[in-house]
Computed example of a mutant assay.
Amino acid sequence: MASSALTGKVEADVEIKASPEQFHDMFTNKPHHLHHACNDKIQGCDLHEGEWGKVGTILNWNYVHDGKVKKVKDVIEAVDPDKNLLTFRVVEGDLMEEYKSFRITLQASPKSEGSGSVVHWTLEYEKLHQGIDHPQTLLQLAVDISKDLDAHLTKPN
């Protein structure tokens, strides 16, 4: 059996009104505030080790996926403020019950016309076995979180 059938990548773009910098800053430097924007999806994010927004930092997340409360521990692998890019690698938690490896990259870019941004999500993974679904519902969760965060970032004070 070829291992390539177990590896995959799912991607989505989300148009938002917030600037790329606002979106990137929230995920990179203030993920512990995300639950204010979408507490039905993200219940909390705690700093396990390191500093907010720095490569090598380890974060613990509590989130809701498919109606169940789940946990994940991830390491920040890449931060590029110039490109508003952030990459997490999952090291522990519920996802590791189904995936050998799981990497999440989000990048916010300015829209070609007008204001706002396009957030590009990439989930790269290796499943433990063939019986595991591609993480489409997780990708949808990322899209929904992006929309909630956008509403939070752009609402009038």
Rank of each mutant, 00 (worst) to 15 (best):
S3Q: 14
S4A: 14
T7D: 14
V10H: 05
E11K: 08
A12Y: 00
V14W: 03
V14G: 07
V14H: 01
E15P: 02
I16Y: 01
K17Q: 14
P20L: 04
P20F: 05
P20I: 06
E21R: 12
Q22C: 08
Q22V: 06
D25Q: 13
M26L: 15
M26W: 02
F27M: 12
T28C: 15
K30V: 01
L34S: 05
A37H: 02
D40H: 09
K41M: 13
I42P: 03
I42T: 03
L47M: 08
H48L: 15
H48R: 14
G50K: 07
G50Y: 10
K54G: 06
K54H: 13
G56E: 05
T57D: 10
I58E: 13
L59A: 03
W61D: 02
N62H: 12
N62R: 14
N62C: 07
H65I: 06
G67I: 02
G67H: 04
V72S: 13
V72D: 09
V72H: 07
D74V: 02
V75T: 12
V75E: 15
E77D: 10
V79Y: 03
D80P: 08
P81L: 07
D82P: 00
D82C: 08
N84I: 00
N84W: 01
N84G: 09
T87V: 14
R89Q: 12
V90T: 12
V91P: 05
V91T: 14
L95F: 13
L95S: 11
L95T: 02
Y99T: 04
S101R: 09
F102Q: 04
R103V: 15
L106A: 09
Q107F: 05
P110G: 10
S112N: 11
G114T: 00
G116F: 06
V118I: 15
V118H: 05
V119D: 10
V119W: 08
T122L: 09
T122D: 09
T122C: 11
T122M: 13
E124H: 00
Y125R: 07
Y125G: 05
E126Y: 02
L128Q: 12
Q130K: 14
D133P: 01
H134Q: 12
H134T: 05
P135N: 05
Q136C: 05
T137G: 00
T137H: 02
L138H: 07
L139Q: 00
Q140P: 00
L141C: 01
A142Y: 00
A142T: 02
V143M: 02
V143S: 03
D144A: 09
I145S: 02
I145K: 01
H152L: 07
N157M: 13
